[in-house]
Write a protein that binds this DNA or RNA. Structure first.
Length: 576
DNA sequence: GCCGTTTTCGGCCCGACTGTTTTCAGTCG
């Protein structure tokens, strides 16, 4: 079992324990343990099998969780988890996904009314049975009926890029409200997570009612879920939720810090405050003994009074940021303006919609100094992938065009060469050797067993003509999981053979993810952030990759294409 | 279940809102 699978098992333990009404701190301990393992930069199985190492030394993992990990690694399952699965019926878990229903009420509904399906629940509501239960009422009953529709729509997380579109449109709308003097987005959107589950908006307003009224008039609002003196929650089309919170000017920094999260980051922040005799809430930082307020206007103040520098939102996951902050070693994260080139894009030769010249002109407009044309190789027949002959023809064209762009843009002869199902590269080595830039990637045989697909990937890394691995895990957010691949082995091989790894900036990919990027950085593997553009517009996704890179803690020098091509070329030669 | 330059027991971040209550539990973030 790999770390992700172990973490998932522990998370499920936490979820199920919640339904059993367990001690909340025990539940959190399982969540913390799962997080620690998911973010651990090395394999749990490897640590366990090394007599020199002790898994319990990792914060959040104690004696009990070590035993659980051992059982999971050795047997692939966990008896306590199996028992809990039997003890907590699936329908209870389904019911708890309905907004407004949680573990306690879901359990009660099943026990008191014998609900065994969401259909039963709907019927019970329609027959007015729910409103009579203690702790329930008419409003809860009708909220459940509304919620059933939402639960069935499975309001999933949306891509960061989609959240960004919504947020920008809503910002435009809210700016028309004169009562609002300050506004900022918070939550996982501000932290730049690859997907976003809801939007959090923070405002300072001279008239709170007016600000809330204004939000409620946004055209896509389908429902107001709740509204109080300081907060309004609405549902946008497709069940997506937005919370807006109104605060005072001198609370804005504290509120922004608070609502940006993550939850784990906030818990850690407040623990540090508490140790200093301070208390942090969304209104400010206060002395515990006499309740004096000592900060709150800006986020910077909030961090400073507990002895920390301001921490970039992308790093606020309670991973390494507190240690880095305390040691004064917070990185200056990479920015979009640092990017000099784009090393993955397609043209009309395969499945792109624009020509080499179109892409070159668009790259110049975007301030780039070099691009690599990397069309598909022949195995990707659906995209009319290139064989050696057609590829060499394309390169001949590039040779001709290069002169036109001399001094403005360097156009590199590249290829995105498939790693074949049986292993090996899709194009002959003598051909690949003529390229300036060779990406290797997997498009077929994605469901192969772990050992096989890992071996294929490592085979490509060992090929001296390959420069970088493109979209190394193959994941498509919300659509397709990553390949079953041993990234520890893949990264070790990349390190050994001096290969680059791609951060594919396509908002549905963002592959490598933040944790893999952090690991690659720790190993010293150079990252290239590429758009994988299939059209001119596709070049504009670079920013999404930058945010992901920031979440991985990358600085400009960790990203190879922040250098100009001559320097990058030298780096390639040294690496190989 | 984890953790400990006060502790191996007794803490564990903090508050808004709702609906059902009549002082609070449940849910959410």
């Amino acid at each position: 079992m790999d770390n992700a699978q172990i973490a998932k098992a522990l998370e499920e333990m936490a979820e199920l324990l919640e339904f059993r009404g367990e001690n909340p701190f025990r539940i959190r301990a399982y969540q913390n343990g799962a997080k620690a393992i998911r973010e651990l930069g090395e394999s749990v199985a490897a640590v366990l099998s090394d007599p020199e190492r002790d898994l319990a030394k990792i914060p959040g993992i104690g004696k009990t969780l070590v035993e659980k990990c051992q059982t999971l690694v050795e047997t692939g399952s966990l008896p306590q988890l199996e028992e809990l699965r039997k003890a907590v019926p699936a329908v209870v878990i389904q019911m708890a996904r309905i907004p407004g229903l949680g573990a306690k009420k879901a359990v009660k509904l099943r026990e008191e009314l014998g609900i065994e399906s969401l259909g039963d629940l709907r019927k019970a509501c329609q027959e007015d049975q729910v409103a009579g239960l203690k702790g329930f009422g008419k409003k809860t009953q009708s909220a459940i009926l509304d919620g059933l529709a939402i639960a069935e729509e499975a309001a999933s997380r949306i891509y960061w890029s989609q959240a960004d579109g919504l947020a920008r449109a809503i910002s435009d709308h809210m700016q028309k409200c004169k009562a609002i003097t300050k506004m900022e987005w918070a939550g996982s959107y501000r932290r730049g997570r690859d997907t976003v589950g809801d939007l959090d908006l923070l405002v300072v307003a001279s008239d709170r009612e007016a600000a809330m009224d204004h939000l409620a008039t946004y055209p896509d609002v389908s429902q107001t879920i709740g509204r109080g003196e300081t907060k309004i929650s609405i549902r946008l089309d497709k069940a997506f939720q937005l919370d807006m919170r109104c605060v005072e000017e001198d609370e804005f920094g504290a509120a922004l810090q608070y609502f940006t999260g993550s939850q784990a980051h906030n818990i850690h922040t407040r623990k540090i405050a508490k140790e200093k005799g301070l208390k942090i809430n969304e209104y400010g930082v206060f002395k515990i003994d006499d309740d004096t307020k000592i900060a709150g206007t800006t986020e910077k103040d909030v961090y400073e009074v507990i002895g920390l520098p301001w921490i970039p939102p992308e790093l606020r996951e309670d991973r390494l940021e507190f240690k880095l902050a305390q040691d004064g070693k917070l990185p200056t994260l990479v920015e979009l303006k640092d990017i000099r080139g784009d090393l993955h894009m397609h043209t009309t030769a395969t499945d792109g919609t624009h020509t080499i010249r179109d892409m070159a002109d668009a790259a110049i407009e975007r301030g780039l100094s070099y691009i690599a044309i990397t069309d598909h190789s022949k195995r990707v027949s659906m995209a009319m992938g290139l064989d050696e002959k057609r590829l060499r023809q394309q390169w001949a064209v590039i040779d001709e065009i290069r002169n036109e762009y001399q001094g403005r843009l360097t156009i590199l002869k590249g290829i995105e060469c498939d790693i074949l199902e049986a292993g090996g590269m899709d194009l002959a080595d003598d051909c690949l050797a003529e390229a300036d830039w060779v990406l290797a990637s997997i498009h077929y045989g994605q469901k192969q067993p772990r050992d096989q697909i890992t071996e294929r990937m490592i085979g490509a890394i060992e090929n001296p003509n390959v420069t970088a691995i493109a979209h190394p895990t193959g994941r498509l957010l919300n659509r397709r999981p990553a390949y079953e691949i041993d990234m520890d082995q893949v990264m070790a091989a990349a390190k050994q053979h001096g290969k680059f790894m791609e951060l594919n900036a396509n908002p549905a990919r963002l592959d490598l993810n933040d944790l893999h990027l952090a690991k690659a950085k720790a190993l010293g593997i150079p990252i290239v952030i590429n758009t994988d553009a299939h059209s001119i517009d596709g070049l504009d996704v670079m920013g999404y990759g930058i945010i992901q890179a920031r979440r991985g803690g990358l600085v400009a020098k960790d990203v190879a294409n922040t250098q100009d091509w001559p320097e990058l070329k030298k780096l390639i030669d040294v690496q190989h």
